[in-house]
Design a protein around this nucleic acid. Structure first.
Length: 569
RNA sequence: GUUUCUAUAGCUCAGCAGGAUAGAGCAGUCGCCUCCUAAGCGACCGAUGGGGGUUCGAGUCCCUCUAGGAACACCA
């Protein structure tokens, strides 16, 4: 496709003898369309050239050799040079690209690059609650988008299936296991046991030590302990899978913490040889104070057991060797910021190529809190994902009953809408923001929501169905699309690939979410202001075609976020 | 206490690595279905936490104050 910004940048670069790259960084898109499609602010050059910005602007403008097929006109406004692109060229370019490219917006920029994404990663034997939604959907969206841009992606569900928490659960099970029937709702019951044992641990240090001992036994592959461990793990995975099926979440690997149990010795050996692993209060630690990190990284506990940091380090070694990753991304809440700072620093001591240590990236996100306070499995204060999805699906069903009672496949549509609402809600805002969970907000399907995007898509389908045809591209007259509403849509579609790149640059799926809202809005305005199916065949063909490609992008974009589109709703 | 994140309209959020008059949604008020789905469209109302600084230009960068979140040695 034509890169208008680059075309302009190249010309200005020639006129000013400043590198094209630098010029392109200065070029901006005016907020007000009256100021053109692109603008070059000359203020920055004023100091070095010792001239007033407007004078610089007109001097540059004189020297530009503009191809009128690409840039229709240039104007000077204050210290800016404003560029108005050739709309017909833009429309032709976008339509051509979309016609000839099944996966519009995709690219092969990621060819031969390997991306490991570690996401969702719930602790087994604990309920899957709304605190786990963000990592699951953010990781899932990044997974899809990396793939779409040609990367080879490995999605890993790094299950929390190891550690003292497990020692605790085993201890509780030993004490009260007979009171619970694990054949139904096993996770709820295990969570109950976990809650009870935690209370006991708080009261009695001896019990806590017993739990730690249980974990040590697990590390030694004690037969009885291993048997319980495996049983709890299987039960948990069954439960998780039900949610993943609903959310459409997929993984290439389920290697959790336990997988690295036999791979931690090597980490300790390597670290010992660096001389940086020192004993402190009976534990083996790496002091990081010279790296600006006050808290040392514990690699081996005083009772000889490993700790999550050790297993995370083993995972880095394993992933580097197994996947030869260019990036290894961890999607977790910002509570773990310090932990990742620590292990990324310690990873530099493992003797890995710089490629691997530089490729480590922690994608953190804000906390989800209930109106009553922080969620806690230990205190039984949480909302289960399953319950939330049931609520939103029920809500979707109610709205269908009210607005479209004769709809076919009601259940299927309600599912797509209810789940789409939840996924979108979790991807709609910047990662860093904390969130106070509000069920009413989840159940609102109006305005900037997942259902709004779905509804807009359904409208495009509905128009196409009524029209009964999609015109051939060669029959589309681009002059019929130079009104403001059509232009807005075309410009947005032109930006699609750029948006996807931005998402990856910032590991920020909300950029795509916002984009889809903008596109849906642009189409809704267009739809309201124009008759698409109308008397003038020429205009009708062009508008139907625009409707067709808008629907395509809405669907593709939503799919990348993990949201499915119903055909009717 | 140390480190760190956040602060934009009544509420929830945008604001392309500083640029032209700060944009939406929800809530509220008012219009629009004999017309391709009103889960929609349009209009009105309404904002950069306080104080310094850097800059031709600051919501955006720096300092500081205030308020809130988070992490800080054998949990993950």
């Amino acid at each position: 496709m034509i890169n208008f910004k680059q075309e302009i940048g190249a010309q200005i670069s020639k006129a000013t003898n400043i590198s094209e790259k630098e010029i392109c960084e200065y070029i901006e898109i005016p907020k007000d369309k009256a100021n053109g499609d692109y603008a070059f602010p000359c203020f920055k050059l004023a100091k070095t050239l010792k001239k007033a910005p407007p004078a610089i602007a007109s001097e540059i403008k004189e020297k530009l050799e503009i191809d009128e097929n690409i840039i229709q006109k240039t104007e000077i406004a204050g210290g800016y040079i404003n560029f108005y692109i050739n709309k017909n060229m833009l429309i032709k370019d976008v339509l051509n690209e979309i016609e000839n490219n099944e996966n519009y917006g995709a690219s092969n920029e990621g060819k031969d690059k390997n991306i490991v994404i570690d996401y969702s990663s719930p602790n087994i034997a604990k309920p899957f609650h709304i605190g786990h939604l963000k990592t699951t959907v953010i990781g899932g969206a990044l997974y899809n988008i990396y793939k779409y841009l040609g990367y080879n992606v490995i999605g890993i569900n790094h299950l929390g299936d190891y550690g003292t928490q497990f020692g605790k659960l085993i201890e509780g099970y030993k004490r009260w296991g007979k009171e619970y029937d694990l054949s139904t709702e096993p996770i709820d019951k295990l969570a109950e046991i976990y809650k009870r044992i935690n209370i006991l641990c708080k009261e009695d240090e001896q019990v806590l030590n017993q739990c730690r001992e249980n974990f040590r036994l697990l590390e030694e592959k004690d037969e009885y302990t291993m048997k319980i461990w495996k049983e709890f793990r299987d039960l948990s995975i069954d439960e998780f899978q039900k949610i993943y099926d609903l959310l459409g979440t997929k993984f290439d690997s389920w290697n959790g913490e336990a997988f690295y149990a036999d791979k931690t010795d090597e980490v300790i050996d390597i670290l010992k040889k660096t001389g940086k692993l020192v004993e402190s209060e009976g534990a083996l630690i790496v002091d990081l104070s010279d790296k600006g990190i006050d808290t040392p990284c514990i690699v081996c506990k005083s009772n000889g057991s490993t700790i999550y940091a050790t297993r995370d380090l083993a995972a880095i070694l394993y992933r580097a060797r197994t996947y030869d990753y260019d990036k290894c991304i961890y999607v977790t809440s910002y509570e773990q910021n310090l932990h990742f700072k620590q292990i990324f620093e310690v990873a530099k001591l493992l003797g890995l190529d710089e490629k691997y240590t530089n490729g480590l990236e922690h994608v953190s996100y804000g906390m989800v809190r209930l109106p009553t306070g922080k969620m806690s499995t230990r205190e039984g204060n949480f909302v289960k994902i399953k319950d939330l999805l049931n609520d939103t699906i029920k809500r979707a069903n109610e709205i269908i009953a009210e607005k479209n009672p004769n709809l076919e496949n009601k259940e299927d549509v309600a599912k797509k809408v209810g789940i789409g609402a939840v996924i979108f809600n979790n991807l709609a805002t910047s990662r860093v923001k904390d969130e106070i969970f509000d069920i009413d907000e989840m159940l609102n399907f109006q305005g900037e929501t997942g259902p709004y995007i779905q509804y807009t898509y359904v409208r495009t389908k509905s128009v196409l169905e009524k029209a009964e045809y999609i015109p051939k591209l060669k029959d589309v007259n681009v002059d019929a699309l130079n009104d403001e509403y059509s232009q807005n849509i075309i410009t947005l579609i032109y930006n699609f690939n750029d948006i996807l790149k931005q998402v990856l640059e910032k590991s920020e799926p909300s950029i795509l979410s916002r984009y889809l809202i903008d596109l849906a809005k642009a189409f809704s305005s267009f739809y309201n202001e124009n008759k698409i199916i109308c008397e003038n065949k020429n205009v009708q063909d062009a508008r139907i075609y625009l409707t067709y490609i808008t629907g395509k992008i809405l669907k593709q974009g939503a799919l990348l976020l993990g949201i499915e589109m119903p055909d009717k709703m």
